[in-house]
């Protein structure tokens, strides 16, 4: 946790009955995804049904979370105060090995990234309660 993330709090989605295992997982330092016992896919975001097959038989599983960069941008426009100190910053779409594509910030990079680069989860504490999934180059 650090002062530089003090304004991220208001960007966080509210925790509810559906998504709480995901956020609880990040709080405990791991990435968890919903797994469909009907068709076997992992999905994000969480729902009460499987987007692929419609099954409501879902369970939460811990996943590795690693993957590769599917696309990315480098944001220069100061859209929100929370990101101001990181400008310009990278946002990546990560194709997770475990299934879904995730949208995540990649902050404080030492070198530019490219599509296809291997990346790993970087779970960033925002405050005493919440952590978010960011990514960093696998190294």
């Amino acid at each position: 946790m650090s002062e530089e993330f003090s304004e991220f709090g208001e960007l966080l989605p509210e925790i509810n009955a559906i998504n709480s295992p995901y956020w609880d997982g990040l709080g405990e330092g791991e990435v968890r995804l919903q797994h469909c016992k009907g068709c076997g896919v992992n999905q994000y975001p969480a729902e009460s049904f499987c987007y692929e097959c419609g099954s409501t038989d879902l369970e939460w599983r811990k996943v590795d979370g690693g993957g590769e960069v599917y696309s990315f941008i480098v944001v220069h426009q100061p859209y929100h105060a929370a990101f101001k100190s990181f400008l310009p910053y990278t946002v990546a779409i990560v194709q997770m090995d475990d299934g879904p594509r995730m949208l995540a910030a990649m902050l404080n990079l030492d070198a530019p990234i490219n599509i296809g680069d291997r990346v790993q989860p970087h779970i960033q504490a925002i405050n005493n309660e919440r952590s978010v999934l960011m990514y960093e180059p696998t190294g």
């Binding site: 966080l12 989605p13 941008i73 426009q77 859209y79 990101f83 946002v91 910030a105």
Partner: peptide
């Protein structure tokens, strides 16, 4: 993108740039 705010994805230009 749902919880795109915390990922820093704001505005249509950012998504089209992706």
């Amino acid at each position: 993108g749902g919880d795109g705010a915390v990922a820093g994805l704001f505005g249509a230009p950012s998504s089209y740039a992706m």
